[in-house]
Design a protein around this nucleic acid. Structure first.
Lengths: 194, 194, 194, 194
DNA sequence: AATGAATGAGCATTCATTCAT
DNA sequence: GATGAATGAATGCTCATTCAT
């Protein structure tokens, strides 16, 4: 990895948390220099502009979240258990594992309504990919007979996703882990009954 | 109503949409003057600062949403039907009725993580009030025997809330009404089975 | 006295202290309304502008100071004792008697260097009148034989004045009454030897 | 000297005169940019805020004044002659040598009553240092027998200081060099008789 | 590849002043 | 004679971005 690449990575890693916490407009170039220890010039030497850094930071945060789920899923054999990973992880939501600031897709969705179309587009893509991932699990589970046949996988996937994201939002707003657990318990029941 | 009160209302009404669309930091005083046709001085003559306008705008948006739900609920007699108002309204979500920019609680929750504690607090209060409202309906429905007895009303309320908010977020991100309808269909099933 | 005159007087009395404490630019119309309990419109109904109020406030503060000296002087019979009133009053300088903020001439002199020519001119006039007053006392004392004959009264007057004003400034800066007393003791010696 | 240091110096040198003439509140950022030829951003890149520039400008003006006195004193051998430097310099007061706007201590003392405590504190320190400087000269002169023994050096120092500052104020207000010379003549007599 | 220094547009806020009522 | 409401210019300050070195 070249020096430039290393610097790029450093910038992404270090700024990812602020972007996910303070949002795009809430994060200033000064925030970015103080958290990286670099100068503005250096950041602009490695990225076209703030938008580009934000984009990479989003991807980085997304990856952390996705890896967290994937790693847990790999340990499970049944498709139902794979699905239950989502509720397990969020029930035991701990800031050390989950990206600080919560789900980057949720955060980006809300802030970048009109203002940052590229970022919104990326978040959109990520959400749909997530939906497809869940639908895939459902599909596979239907094939093995774990799940009832004839499920509208897209509908179920979106419903699960909505519960997950809504629960994350509630936790973010209330700072109360209890609520996320309530929502996850209901979601577990729902998954069990599929 | 005094002239000042009229101006205040004008400012709130006109800025409410921008705040709910662009967020607090994304909305500038210049945005506010151009949408109201007033000068900065006039805005500051009627409000202490931008925060205060944002707060009132939040309350205004919240009221629109709440009134929308309440009006529909008033038409229903059974408690189950009252609950189904949420899914109905969101399924037929149309920008003219629902506040532009989506749910103000969701939007505020995500942006005001640390930066605007008073706003966050207000949103928190609104969310918990909503939760209590749903729990009340459940309670009443349990008393009349419409719902199964022994429900953990708070848990159910939070689960419904999470689905609603998650669905709103997904719609906001994808601009696709189909998804919100998927989530609402599942939520209807859930409510029917209570 | 008409109602307008009463209001005018109220404004002058109440704002005099702020002007003498915070200075002309340091005193805002808002300061003036909050200290008078009146509205901006009312102030502008009674005065052409802020400058005019400041001018009257200056005169008011000046009068307080002058009256304080005059009252004490009236009690003295010898001209030397009349002169010593200045040192006595300043040695026992107490905020209740002396205008809060110190000598209005000094304050105006320093702030209105270029910015407020009319005010500066007024302060100039007041200073020269003070000088003439002292010179008069000296003249009279020379006639009665209390003072040495042949004094350059203007020179002596200015020297006394410089000591007084310098002492007031030092007190204002240090908040230490000790220093004003030091300077006044020397000035007493000087006056005694005239 | 780095470029930043050069710019800093430029800002200080160029703004020092305005601050000493118009005062702190009277000097705007726009004044500062137009006199330096720099942009606001550049000023804020080199100083934390306006207060910091004002502080440095005060120090700069103070230094000019102090250097002026020190340079003249260095030419004198007797302590009495050293003291007489103050009266000499002020008698021949010429704007080219003395900071435009007069004594920065006087100016700061009067404006910064409450509003700018740090600046006031600095001016206080400068005044007391000046007092100690004069007291030192007196002390030394007493040791060599130039001055009468048993002088209360602090009292004499303050008295001299008051005369100097008062005279500067009178000159500032009247724009008449004659008056400062009057006051200085009396002060010379006083010093000669010590 | 990175820095230091600057830019200029934009920010939220306060100012003295005006004027219809 | 006084108020309430507005104006528009100015305030101090921060922003993302650029570029010579």
């Amino acid at each position: 990895m070249s020096k430039a690449d290393k610097t790029k990575e450093l910038i992404i890693e270090r700024t990812a948390e602020i972007f996910n916490t303070k949002g795009f407009s809430g994060t200033s170039l000064n925030d970015m220099t103080s958290v990286t220890g670099l100068t503005k010039g250096s950041i602009y030497g490695n990225f076209k502009n703030k938008d580009e850094v934000a984009m990479e930071a989003f991807k980085f945060n997304l990856q952390i979240m996705n890896h967290l789920f994937s790693a847990e899923m790999a340990k499970k054999t049944s498709f139902r258990d794979k699905l239950l990973v989502y509720t397990d992880v969020l029930s035991n939501f701990s800031e050390r594992k989950f990206p600080r600031g919560g789900c980057p897709i949720l955060n980006t969705a809300v802030e970048s309504d009109d203002t940052h179309p590229l970022l919104k587009q990326r978040a959109q893509k990520a959400l749909l990919a997530w939906k497809d991932k869940i639908a895939d699990i459902l599909e596979n589970g239907m094939e093995t007979g774990e799940f009832k046949s004839g499920l509208n996988t897209e509908q179920v996937a979106i419903s699960i996703l909505a519960s997950l994201e809504g629960a994350i939002m509630i936790r973010k707003l209330t700072d109360n882990q209890k609520y996320i657990q309530f929502a996850m318990k209901s979601l577990q029941d729902y998954i069990h009954q599929l």
